[in-house]
Amino acid sequence: MTALLSLAIDITLLSVILAMLLCMIRLLLGPTAQDRVLALDTLWMCAMLLALALGLRFASIIYFEAAMLIALTGFVSTVALTKFLMRGEVIE
C-alpha cells in the first residue's frame, strides 16, 4: 500500500509538471495577451500544486509556506496584469 502511495505521489508530480509544460505552450503561442495572462495564472496554480506535491514527497511541512506564498503572489500578479491590459496602467 505504501508503494502504491509513493507511486501516486510520483504520478502527481509528473502530471503537474506536464500541466506546467502545457501551460508554457499556451503562454508561448497564445494569440492574444489575455491568453498569455490566463496561461500565466494557471502556471502559478500549477507551481503551487507542485510545491504541495513536493511536500508530500519529502514528508516535510516546510513546503506549505512556499505554496501559500506562491498562491498569494500569483493572485497579486494576475490582478496587476489584467489591470494593466484593461487600463494601460496598474495604479491610476
Binding site: L5, A8, T12, S15, L18, A19, A39, T42, L49
Partner: peptide
C-alpha cells in the same frame, strides 16, 4: 492515493483544455 490520482488527472485535463 485516490485523492492524489483524482487531483493529478484533473490538473492534466485542465491544462489540456487550456
Amino acid at each position: 492515493t485516490l485523492l492524489l490520482l483524482l487531483g493529478s488527472a484533473i490538473v492534466l485535463i485542465g491544462a489540456l483544455g487550456l
